[in-house]
Design a protein around this nucleic acid. Structure first.
Lengths: 357, 357
DNA sequence: TGTCAACACGAAAACGTTTTCGTTAAATAT
DNA sequence: ATATTTAACGAAAACGTTTTCGTGTTGACA
């Protein structure tokens, strides 16, 4: 077992100083051609690679990005990670991921664990519990310590940082508008409780689209699911609620659901109740994932472009990190003040499939 | 912006030495009660947390685990990550993830990027391209450098390390046996090309189950999909192949597919061709993911227990890491030799849903 | 009064780098 | 012949810790 070799060992072996080895390996012209050749050959032979931790300590930066998300077994979040990883890797960064599991406490613990030097900045999406508590001190605390944060999807005005979101509002507007154009007269909304910001925005979009077309919203046509319970493992409850909803409102001919699962479940229930899709009932979901694509009938959705969000977030973060570098290196840089925080809005797009006419 | 405070700054502020501060914070009884109190109060006030990088450098271990997987937008892999993260976090470790994207080169680059001190050990699943090339030198190289590896799911005999796999063979046997018991007479297999080990094992299981029941396998009933093409984005090709397959073999009354997508696609195609499921045709897939649960009809599957695999893998790795620690700390430990490499086999389980009788 | 422990703390090394600043010897310029 | 530059290298500091080994000051004891 040959442990990784260090500069010191190379130096000893070749009977030169550590500094000489370091310089030779970086092709410093302080070192003679002969010794440089000799040292580089030796280093190559022993497959020398500088120790990352030592470099991190010296440079006071780790070139790794911390990702903190509520849940990883989730198509949307994994596409975001893929996006982040893509650009991070391309730009020479690593990513380290933490999962809050939708818990406030785990979010804090994870942040503290990573904020002590392990990473240069965060990309995160806020946990449900945190949104409920509306306690954002941990975000502001880490920002105050000089560690930049980029938030995506589930963001919040109370924290000053770069943000990447999808245009939930207009996405919903587009979807409902499409249903209206397709001649739906009684469009239902299946949504979550209000505290997750994205759910609220999509609900507002629904209302807006109706109003724009001169339709008065009927509160009976809005079904709010309590998503504090784990729906994935309580599918029957969800389906029962939806069934009840359809039975109380037999005139429904269009459904807009704020996520994929609700939409697919709605289709499933509706078909059992005798609806034909899209003839009797048209359905549009939000978030374009695997379910939408493979459902029967396949689901028309509002695409969220998770990967693009991840890429944008990573670019924002890295640019800020490297701007900071420049700022400390160049002494007087008043002309190049830190840029303001920006909010990137990713446009949504309707992907038409079989669940609409 | 208050940057994180260091021992040195505390020492200066309180006019003591760095060593005193360090000892006081760890409650060393070398330090008087008075100074200890004072220092701890000050540290708490300024929210002192030791710098992780410095600790890593000093201890020559990072308490972080490197995960290297072919793809993250994939239900199975994300459940594995969830499992790893769960136990890693519980045992005080972080996880850093790299994606090989099924590419040999990216796998190597990622490994080298992480192996230079950033992590203590790897948990990985081999990329398709690597399996094709059968070139495993990078795995053996990192192991030789003293960095332990745990492989899961896609493993290979040529590398000596701990492994966690599912019982692909017996899972397939069980599934096909179930179809036979359910009175299927002509059971088809939809599988991949042979080079991914798991596909091969599942195929063998299929053959074994047939043979056990005295049925001669019919090669016409085996459809091999070339999964080098990106099926997710070429669904039509996949479906066309399957349709052709059904048409050439109209007597098929049972299908075993080596993954979820093939199974769901088979159901979709079959229904379009007029089959009723499960009456005319019964289907079982491998890998229990979102698709299986939400398909119509929902799919009977062989569950892979991704999360459990992740947990087992993490435990194996961490135990080995901490055994190494013990070995270097206690000088004579001949009685406690390094344990042999073990292969944990996770039992599969059939989850019955609507696609079988 | 002199010896020795106990106490409370500091100095320094170590982890693996990079970089600044010497230092020596040879080469060139004056 | 003397002064100055240049080439080639080494020493040491720094990043933030922990830990080993002093060291000086007490107080107790003979």
């Amino acid at each position: 077992m040959k442990k990784k070799i260090t500069l010191k060992q190379i130096a000893k072996e070749l009977d030169v100083s550590v500094s000489t080895v370091s310089k030779a390996l970086s092709n410093s012209k302080e070192i003679s051609e002969d010794t440089t050749k000799k040292i580089q050959a030796f280093a190559k032979l022993y497959n020398y690679k500088p120790n990352n931790i030592a470099l991190s300590l010296k440079n006071r930066k780790t070139r790794t990005i911390g990702i903190l998300i509520p849940e990883i077994v989730h198509h949307f979040f994994s596409t975001v990670i893929r996006g982040i990883e893509r650009v991070a890797n391309r730009r020479g960064y690593n990513v380290i991921v933490g999962l809050s599991n939708e818990s406030f406490t785990k979010e804090i613990i994870n942040m503290e664990m990573l904020a002590n030097g392990s990473i240069d900045g965060f990309i995160l999406s806020i946990s449900k519990e945190t949104l409920l508590k509306q306690d954002y001190h941990h975000f502001n605390a880490t920002i105050n310590q000089g560690m930049p944060i980029v938030m995506f999807d589930r963001v919040v005005n109370e924290v000053d940082c770069d943000k990447v979101i999808v245009d939930d509002f207009n996405g919903a507007v587009k979807a409902v508008k499409k249903l209206i154009e397709n001649n739906c007269k009684n469009i239902a909304l299946i949504t979550t409780m209000d505290y997750v910001s994205v759910g609220r925005l999509r609900t507002q979009g629904y209302l807006e689209a109706l109003q724009n077309s001169g339709i008065v919203a009927d509160s009976n046509l809005i079904l709010k699911i309590d998503d504090s319970l784990d729906v994935e493992n309580n599918l029957e409850i969800l389906e029962a609620e939806i069934a009840q909803f359809f039975k109380s409102n037999p005139n429904i001919d269009g459904v807009f659901a704020v996520n994929e699962l609700y939409a697919v479940s709605a289709m499933k229930v509706a078909r059992k109740l005798g609806f034909t899709i899209p003839e009797d009932l048209q359905v549009i979901g939000f978030t374009d994932g695997v379910l939408s694509k493979h459902a029967t009938p396949s689901l028309t959705t509002v695409s969220q472009h998770g990967q693009k969000m991840g890429e944008q977030a990573a670019n924002l973060l890295i640019e800020r990190l490297e701007a900071e570098d420049a700022e400390t290196e160049i002494y007087f840089t008043n002309n190049d003040r830190k840029r303001d925080f920006i909010k990137v809005v990713i446009e949504t797009e309707i992907i038409e499939r079989e669940s609409t006419k």
